[in-house]
Design a protein around this nucleic acid. Structure first.
Lengths: 240, 240
DNA sequence: AGGTGAATGTGACGTTTGTCATGGTTTCTG
DNA sequence: CAGAAACCATGACAAACGTCACATTCACCT
């Protein structure tokens, strides 16, 4: 009996995994859960580690159990673009697997990540045997497709200032607030924010100062607190 | 026996529809094709007509038989953003149906369009009964998701000049060349091109003049011919 | 076929944004 | 805990781009 528990223990039994009911796997039969349990591999990654690399062809997917990861790709000018984040219960690599294309983004752990690796064959067998599961995946993919469309419109039409405001709101929506500090519960460098917005790091720094000056946000190092959300919504022209 | 045939007759029999084997419906059983045949409704739209409207909830999908349509959405500043085009065999509205969300884009006929309307119930019954069909849809959605990711990176990081070059190449790739003129086989106004690139119409006009001056393209009204593709690829930094 | 409204083209100008340079600060690592 | 490396910040400047105004041309409709 070890006296020390890890911070985020991965349950080795999928049947008891509290995350499953929230995830795409909620509609698996108990036999399928058993199968999943037998073949999945629990892994963990340290902050900064690469979980999957752009351009490679994965043989399975990761289901994130705890921790946060960023999906980013390298543009033609050497700049990184952060596409999205993956957290709790999110599936990683499924797009590439299902469209039979190389990975379109690199997945990097932003903090320590625990994740289960699910082999390609198992995923496909579920897809063939379980229409509900299939529909779950399809629904998710279609939802993400819609989100991507929104993003395209935003990036193409909005100014950097507007996009930054929107990104801050999005981060709050996705990661929530830190219990103690009330700040947005994710730590990103200015450069990473710039890579989300698609602008130069200096521009982000200047705009964050501006927002601070206007009383929209409060900044303590990498912790950002939203003070006037309504105004930030107006600045970012976020109306949906 | 009518003496006059329409330009693009829609075959009322799906079994004989030459487009089917290229489309997502290629893996339907003959029974399913019969079913499709019985319930589908052939419709046509004139140039400029709206086939589906952003924000509404469709009760089925269109499968395009001939003609071209554009999918566009209205940004927060009143500017249109063209998301993509739909042609030959493309399915329209499936994203919204499958993700159970309102349509994220308006579909407008760019020329006369013939299309088959397939009710929601039929589509879903195929999805449940035919895993191959399901996988086809899933594969397509995942592919489009990858394309969307690429687009996001491009728009976020590239200059307007680079994006315009890329758009021209994309149009050529998607629509091919006109047999007679050798120009890109689609007619778009400068404003529509601007709405693809995400920039002001004037900027597009100026850049098109520049490209013409540099010998990259030839312009006759709305017909654009690519003269130096290799150089255009370099200008657009298109390397994949 | 010809008029009319939309689309194209051009110039001037201001704003936004990117780039480069430099120095101070925080964070990480051994 | 100290040194190194990454990160943050600010200024100056240039380039890219958007906007407005107006002239011209084209495409579409009856």
């Amino acid at each position: 009996m070890s006296s020390k528990t890890t911070h985020n223990p991965v349950p080795f039994d999928c049947a008891n995994c509290g995350k499953r009911h929230l995830s795409l796997f909620k509609d698996l039969t108990s036999e399928e859960v058993d199968e999943l349990n037998n073949v999945k591999a629990c892994t963990s990654f340290k902050k900064g580690q690469i979980m999957m690399s752009e351009g490679s062809r994965p043989n399975g997917v990761f289901c994130i159990h705890s921790g946060k990861a960023k999906l980013h790709r390298l543009g033609q000018n050497g700049k990184d673009q952060i596409i999205r984040f993956a957290v709790n219960g999110d599936l990683i690599g499924y797009r590439s697997l299902l469209s039979e294309e190389p990975l379109s983004a690199t997945v990097e752990a932003l903090e320590d990540v625990h994740a289960c690796y699910i082999p390609k064959q198992v995923l496909f067998s579920f897809l063939e045997k379980n229409p509900k599961f299939s529909l779950n995946i399809l629904r998710m993919a279609c939802h993400e497709l819609g989100e991507a469309g929104k993003l395209i419109t935003d990036i193409a039409q909005k100014s950097v200032r507007e996009r930054l405001a929107e990104v801050l709101l999005m981060l709050k929506a996705q990661f929530g607030l830190n219990e103690e500090t009330g700040a947005i519960d994710i730590t990103l460098t200015r450069e990473e924010i710039a890579n989300m917005v698609g602008t130069a790091t200096e521009s982000v720094i200047r705009l964050i100062s501006e927002f601070k000056g206007d009383g929209l946000i409060e900044v303590k190092g990498r912790n950002i607190t939203i003070l006037d959300e309504a105004q930030l919504v107006r600045v970012g022209k976020v109306f949906d």
